[in-house]
Each structure stands twice: as C-alpha cells, then as structure tokens.
Design a binder for these strands. Structure first.
Lengths: 191, 191
DNA sequence: TAACGTAGAGAACGCACGTTCTCACGTCAA
DNA sequence: TTGACGTGAGAACGTGCGTTCTCTACGTTA
C-alpha cells in the first residue's frame, strides 16, 4: 500500500474517531481497525499518538478554513461576507456529527498535557481570527470589530457544542449585525 | 475524621488537581495523597471517580456564581451591572491558576463519555445564562440581549483559556457596551 | 529456484489507573 | 478486658492502552 494513501486513510479514521469520541477515548488499535492501516505502518507514519493527533488537527484546520472561505466568498459584497461567516457556522452546527469545535475540545482534553496540541489550537484560532480581521478590513470597518466578531463566533461554537443546538449561530449573527450597524462606516444596509 | 471534613478536603484537592491538570490526567491516588483522605474513605464518599468529578463541578458552580454575583452586586445601577460581569471575568482570567473555564474544559475532555459531566456542564451554563437574563431584565433591556452577552462571555472565557491572556475580557466588554448602546432603552450613559 | 526484505496480523510487554482487598491498629460498648 | 467495628496505609487485581516484537506470507531479484 502506498504510503501517501495509508497516511490519508489513517488520518481519515483518526479524525472521525478523535472528533466523535474524544482523543483519549480512542486507542491506536481502534485507529488501526477503522483505517485498515497496520500498527507497524501507523507508527512509521506517526511515531507517537501525539503526532497523529497533531496531524489530525493540522489537516482539519486546512479543511475547516477552506470550507469557511469557500462559503464566505460566494458573496461579493464585503459587507455581506461578515454575516455569511455566521451562516456557515449555523450550517456546520447542524451537521449530524457536529460535536463542538475540535480545537476547543482538544484543548480541554489535552491542553494541560500536550504542547503539540496547544500549539495546534493556538495556531488554528489565530488563523481564524486573522481571517476575520481580513474580512473586516476589506469591508472598511474598524479593526477592533474583528476581535469582537471572533469572540461571538467562539461563544457560538462552544455553546452549540454544549447544548447540541444550532441556534447560537443565529444569536451571534444578530449580535454581529448590531455591532456592524453601530459602527462608523458601518452597514445599515446589511439585512 | 469527620465525614463532612473529609468530603471538603477531598473536594478541595480534586478541584485543584482536576482543574489544573485535567480530570483524566489525575488519578484517584493523587487525590488521596493531596487530600489526606484514604482511598477507602474516598470511595465511601464518592462511589466512583465520575461522581467525584460531578461533585467537584457542582461545588465549583456554586462558588463561581457566588463570586460573580458578589462582584456584580457591588453596583447598584442595573445598567452598570452588565459591564461589571466582564470586569469580573477579567479579574478571573488574571488569576495565577487560571486555565480556562472548568466546564468547557470538562466538556471537551468528558463530553463524549460521561453523562454526569454533560449534565453538570449544561446546568452550569444554563444558570449563568439565566443570571445574565436577570441582569438584562432588571436593566429594562430587551430579552434578546442576554443571549448575545452570554456568547460574548463564553467566547472570552474560551479565548482567555487558549491564549493565556486576559485581554479577551476587555474586548468582550467593549462589544457588550456597543450592544447596550445600540439598543432601544439602551444605555448611552454607561461609560 | 532460493534467499532476502518487507508488510500485515496480532501477540506481548510495561505501565498507569480505577477499584477492591488485606491487615494491623485504635476505639468504644458490654 | 474483650471483641466487634471502623479506619488508614497501601498492596493487589483487572483492565486498557501505547508501543514494540514475533511470526508468517509474499513479492522481488540473482
């Protein structure tokens, strides 16, 4: 079996299991069984579980931000792109296997014990925040708004995870629109 | 040794260890050593680790909300009480042992495996949300504001935990004030 | 064909930890 | 005084899991 293929299969299984059941609840044996990649191969690709977790978070980060950007960029008007972020969150929260933000959950689980995981979580959140900052800048809005939108999005994610409901996305979107409207250069035009 | 005393000592140690290192990283032996309560006694008081975790979260919830309320109620003006929530968050985030929200972390760690923990987390978040709703109602502000403030607070907590910085509290406070100001009946008077 | 390297399956190892058991000791009632 | 009982210290047990090792089978090459 090709190494590249084995790696992808291992990460597919790891992502499904780690996200769905938590990292510590899933043994390497379960990853082996679910992926069809032998233990020997797994340990060649990822010398320790830590590094499999790291790779899972890293690949998920790329995909997650890719999906978000794809959705947002369907809107041409920079002012519409900001609420579109929360629309996408709502879609995400509604997915059948949604179980909260993978990074927030991983931080809760491993933040105190794994430096690798902490680094991944910080990098992901920084990237998301910077993406929002880009949207805010493109819309000609004040920089300070980015951090506020970021906090709303984070609050919505953590709340959706805990309650199992998608409604926090709409709440956050409402708050985001209020903040936009109350802003110099802000958007009374946005629905 | 009195049972009540043993229980408190066990919970003191459990809280310090579970919060600081994560629940799964702390064995019952460590709780025994840190608390001075024998294993036999521990298992009499809490028949399984699950239930010790549950009791830890429950007692912390009472204390956490008590401290918050105590701080908030120093302000008599209902409109000042809302930003005071975020002031208190900032104080909390600045404490030396702060390591994020215990409930969010516990959810990330055990949400997929322990019903008891999930119930505690939901109860705590519901109580916090309702506390905010009370503040909003007392200030004569629209009900919808409560959910938005809640999301800001949650976002601030999770962000402070991940970044290790207290600044998200000030950001959330700024956003909260903007939302207050943009609101009918809202408070252009609040600093 | 024969020797060799590689990969997969899964057994084995070592350790950590939740939980229970043992045993010696102190306490209190009869 | 004695005997039943509760307690503390910690050993012991069982299990799960991260990691490594063994063995077998197969494909490749001289």
């Amino acid at each position: 079996m090709d190494s590249e293929v084995a790696r992808e299969q291992a990460l597919d299984a790891a992502e499904r299991l780690f996200y769905g059941q938590g990292v510590q609840a899933v043994g390497m044996d379960a990853v082996r069984t679910a992926s069809g990649v032998s233990l020997k191969r797994l340990y060649q690709l990822f010398p320790a579980k830590d590094q499999l977790v790291e790779a899972y978070l890293e690949r998920r980060d790329l995909r997650w931000r890719g999906r978000l950007a794809e959705h947002v960029e369907r809107h041409d008007d920079p002012l519409e792109r900001i609420p579109a972020v929360f629309d996408w969150l709502e879609e995400w929260f509604g997915e059948a296997d949604f179980r909260g933000c993978a990074w927030i959950n991983s931080y809760g689980e491993l933040g105190a014990t794994s430096e690798r995981v902490v680094a991944q979580v910080r990098a992901h959140k920084r990237a998301f925040r910077e993406y929002l900052a880009g949207l805010v800048a493109d819309a000609g809005l004040p920089t300070a708004l980015a951090g506020q939108l970021f906090l709303l999005a984070e609050g919505a994610m953590v709340t959706a995870g805990i309650t199992g409901s998608a409604e926090s996305a709409a709440e956050a979107r409402g708050a985001a629109l209020s903040l936009l409207r109350g802003t110099p250069g802000g958007a009374s035009a946005v629905n």
